[in-house]
């Protein structure tokens, strides 16, 4: 997957969790938690959707890598490169 495709994959997941949210305005380097008011249940959903859709495991110790959209893409790039 390209960087853009990974970005789209993440945005799609967040859009499923927050169907009413406008995804256009997400900034790459601001914490998702603050921009979208996500809580820990929502982060669990992102992790679980990644596993369901792409069979990617995100261990709990890596959850902080999902802090911003940018850091999430960077973290997932090596894991999703060959998809």
């Amino acid at each position: 997957m390209t960087k853009d495709a990974i970005r789209q994959a993440i945005v799609d997941i967040i859009q499923e969790i927050l169907p009413d949210e406008d995804m256009g305005g997400i900034e790459l380097d601001k914490p998702l938690r603050d921009q979208l008011e996500l809580d820990s249940m929502d982060f669990l959903d992102i992790v679980m959707e990644l596993r369901k859709r792409y069979h990617i495991e995100v261990p709990e110790k890596d959850y902080m890598e999902l802090n911003t959209l940018g850091s999430t893409i960077a973290y997932l790039e090596p894991k999703m490169a060959n998809l």
């Binding site: 969790i17 927050l18 979208l36 008011e37 996500l38 809580d39 249940m41 929502d42 959903d45």
Partner: peptide, 11 residues
């Protein structure tokens, strides 16, 4: 989004 009912809907 932090309201329990909204959490429940999302989940």
């Amino acid at each position: 989004k932090s309201a329990p009912f909204q959490k429940l809907l999302r989940q």
